[in-house]
Amino acid sequence: MRGRQVRAMETGLTGLWKRVKMYKEAYFMLAPFTLLFVTFTIVPILAALYFSFTSFNMLQKPEWVGAANYTRLFFTDDVFLIAVKNTLLFAFITGPIGYLLSFMFAWFINDLGPKLRSVLTLIFYAPSLAGNVFFIWLYLFSGDAYGFANSKLMSYGIIKEPILWLTDPKYNFTIVVLVIIWLSMGAGFLAFIAGLQTVDTSLNEAGVIDGIQNRWQELWYITIPQMVPQLLFGAVMTIATSFAVGYQSMALTGFPSTDYSTHTIVLHLLDYGAIRFEMGYASAIAVVLFAGMLFVWNVLQKSLRKISD
């Protein structure tokens, strides 16, 4: 490491090799994770990429079909287009709301005393901690007269007949949106809580001298710029979850939902991968979803970096 100041300016392979050797400790520290990451994550992803150009029923060897899966996806599969529309709607409604709420909650909770803070963090993280808990909402929005929402609304005389909350396309989309927002205090939320603790509070006092007048200005001008890395982390997690809505809507509204009203790309993928055993086609769906998420991530990355400057 001593030689770092030399900053090898040579180009070509020998120059590269010198720089690699200069950072040999860094490569050693990366090695254990990289070995596992390549073997169990990268190679399977590359395999899935390859499958997306094949016809593969998981029993016989995959057979190369070129771009056929992709042309079928975009030109002949009408249900896929419904899934894309619903996924985009879910993502653009639940993503930003869930992201902002988890940051606001983390910020509010961070101001409280230690005991109350621990308890509230646990409570807000509870839906993520408890696993498959959306079934509680089945009780609340059960379609018969005994469901909580129906029985309350009927006893107050607001409605005369029970509403089929989870099967009627007029309501089920909204309910799934609510449940996803409820579930969105996850990894991002805890990272924000931890991030707020690494923020340098001495800057706040400097801020007061510089004319910062209230907590909201302090948040915007001092706290947020210091938290850009955590905010980026939260953004990736939000993209990864909000574009992958599916399991929640399946648990609540059934599969397939009435008129595919809550059908999403991930459910389409499950349909072909786990039910019809068309792994090649399912892989193509996964690749398209991945490309969409990458696009959104690149846009967000650029705009969040701007805030930090």
């Binding site: 992803i45 395999a47 899935a48 990864a240 499950l270 991968g273 979803l289 991945f290």
Partner: peptide, 9 residues
């Protein structure tokens, strides 16, 4: 790698 869905891997 975080963004790629695990169902097909």
């Amino acid at each position: 790698a975080i963004l790629f869905r695990p169902e097909v891997t």
